[in-house]
Simulated scan of single mutants.
Amino acid sequence: MPLPPVPDFLTLTFRPDLNVLLVRWQRLISVAEMQQGYLVLLEYAAEHGCRHWLLDGRRRFNTDREGAQWMLSTFLPQLQPRLHQRTYLAYLLAPVNLRDQDADAAFPPATYFGGKPFLAERFVEEGEAVRWLQQQP
């Protein structure tokens, strides 16, 4: 089955040298576009067997509560069945987004990820995010 086309608001690049799927959101997006983008991302990750994702969200707003709920209840549970091991998501955000209370409330606390087949962390520097991904199994 061919891979779905990548929407214009997203770029996907598999970096085999790092074993990282680099995802860059190109503009502000709606919740429906967020969902579409993540579903396309999952197809590409499965095709490459890649469980280390660098998600650059500096050009879009942080996920709102509706988007966060969809991620937690619908999207993230799909990762283990498709990728068969724990998936690591490094979110690259603009510093101002890390100080946004609504955005912060939408992102689960670190304790949420304990025992889950996925782990997410937020970063403001790309190099730091890549180093974190490289430290994961």
Rank of each mutant, 00 (worst) to 15 (best):
M1I: 09
M1G: 11
L3G: 03
L3E: 03
P4Y: 07
P5K: 10
P5N: 06
V6H: 06
F9Y: 12
T11Q: 11
T11A: 12
L12D: 07
L12R: 07
F14A: 04
D17R: 11
D17A: 15
L18A: 09
R24S: 14
W25R: 14
R27C: 09
R27T: 14
L28V: 13
I29L: 15
S30G: 12
S30P: 02
S30K: 08
V31F: 06
Q35A: 03
Q36W: 12
G37T: 01
Y38G: 04
Y38H: 15
V40W: 07
L42G: 08
L42H: 05
E43K: 12
E43I: 04
Y44I: 01
Y44W: 14
Y44N: 03
A45M: 08
E47P: 00
C50K: 04
R51L: 01
H52L: 09
L54V: 06
D56K: 10
D56W: 11
G57W: 02
G57H: 14
R58N: 06
R59E: 13
N62P: 05
T63F: 11
D64H: 08
D64V: 06
A68T: 07
W70D: 07
M71W: 06
M71N: 08
S73Q: 15
S73W: 13
F75N: 00
Q80W: 04
P81Q: 08
R82Q: 15
R86L: 03
R86W: 01
T87Q: 05
L89D: 14
A90S: 02
A90N: 12
A90F: 09
Y91I: 10
L92T: 04
L92K: 12
L93E: 05
L93F: 14
L93A: 07
A94L: 13
P95S: 05
P95R: 03
R99L: 14
Q101S: 14
D102I: 05
A106H: 10
F107C: 03
T111M: 11
Y112K: 01
F113R: 05
F113P: 01
G115I: 01
K116L: 09
K116N: 01
P117V: 08
P117Y: 04
P117W: 08
E121I: 00
R122E: 07
V124P: 04
E125G: 01
E125I: 01
E126C: 10
G127Q: 09
E128K: 10
E128P: 00
A129W: 07
V130Q: 07
R131E: 14
R131S: 13
W132K: 02
L133S: 07
L133N: 04
Q134F: 02
Q136K: 11
P137G: 06
